[in-house]
């Protein structure tokens, strides 16, 4: 079985600093592997442990520095890594990203069986790229997956966690799935993995290599564009501190709407 894991490099959103003009200070911002993509990668590695003949390719679209992140995945037991990097891919929205990644997979990995994405990326947090890739490739998708239960006879059985309950779903491969989370410890690179990774090469493709036109990718290929970005207004409340549980009980009662005096 051939698995493609889509991984995005994202800024660490818990460590954002602001410039004087209220824009995000990009210099010195740490880049990390999107946490949900760590789960996606883990799910693939777990399948590889449980079944024979599994080949994993990690794929990322982003600047050249995302190659370092992909090298780390090779150290974890991933077989190949592909970086889609081109100036013309820059500033893509989820439509253009889905189209670029989908087209790259169609061109370069046409015999894939399973694509695993994260459910969200923490920077944009749209949860749209996975379904958009699936639509571009015209394959089924299953989102909100908590666990891959089994993989047999060209079918995957998975558990979905939804707001109203849990679903057990069967999907025919090839398919795309989006991982919400799973209960496992992040894998640690084994020593020989690290050595192998240092000597390995990341395959990099640009726009021409995957046969897209400039107007189909990046900002030009994106139906949406940002017209304005701003920092949210801080809420204009002055917190009134009380000094005892008794006073707090009174405030709770007022806020409940029971008593208004």
């Amino acid at each position: 079985m051939k698995i493609v894991v889509c991984i995005k490099q994202v800024p660490d959103t818990s460590d954002i600093k602001w410039t004087e003009n209220n824009t995000i200070q990009r210099e010195g911002l740490e880049s990390v592997m999107n946490p949900y993509d760590v789960y996606a990668l883990e799910a693939a590695l777990k399948l590889k442990k449980s079944y024979d003949n599994i080949e994993i390719t990690t794929l990322s679209m982003g600047p050249l520095q995302a190659g370092d992140m992909l090298k780390k995945t090779l150290a974890l037991g991933v077989d190949n890594a592909i970086l889609l990097s081109d100036r013309k891919f820059a500033a893509a929205d989820t439509y253009a990203t889905g189209k670029t990644i989908g087209t790259a997979i169609k061109q370069k990995l046409p015999d894939f069986d399973l694509i695993i994405c994260g459910q969200f990326a923490i920077d944009g947090d749209t949860a749209q790229t996975g379904p958009s890739i699936a639509n571009t490739l015209n394959i089924p998708q299953v989102t909100y997956i908590q666990e891959i239960i089994s993989s047999e006879n060209g079918e995957l059985k998975v558990r979905r966690e939804l707001d109203d309950g849990t679903e057990i779903v069967k999907v025919k491969l090839p398919a795309l799935i989006c991982m919400l989370q799973d209960y496992f410890e992040p894998a640690r690179a084994r020593i020989n993995g690290i050595i192998k990774a240092q000597n390995s090469e990341i395959t990099t493709y640009g726009l021409d290599d995957i046969g897209l036109l400039p107007e189909e990718a990046g900002l030009r290929g994106s139906p949406t564009y940002v017209s304005k970005a701003f920092r949210p207004e801080p809420k204009n409340t002055e917190c009134v501190f009380v000094n005892s549980a008794e006073e707090l009980a009174e405030k709770i009662q007022i806020c409940k709407g029971g008593k208004n005096d």
């Binding site: 929205d93 989820t94 439509y95 889905g98 189209k99 947090d125 749209t126 949860a127 749209q128 790229t129 996975g130 379904p131 958009s132 699936a134 639509n135 571009t136 998708q141 989102t143 909100y144 939804l162 707001d163 994106s222 139906p223 949406t224």
Partner: peptide, 23 residues
């Protein structure tokens, strides 16, 4: 932007070749 809406909306927008703004 429910579980269903988030599963469905990006498929519709991609099929219609249009943009989708989430949440």
């Amino acid at each position: 932007a429910t579980n269903q809406g988030r599963d469905l909306a990006p498929r519709i927008s991609t099929a219609l070749h249009t943009g989708l703004t989430a949440d």
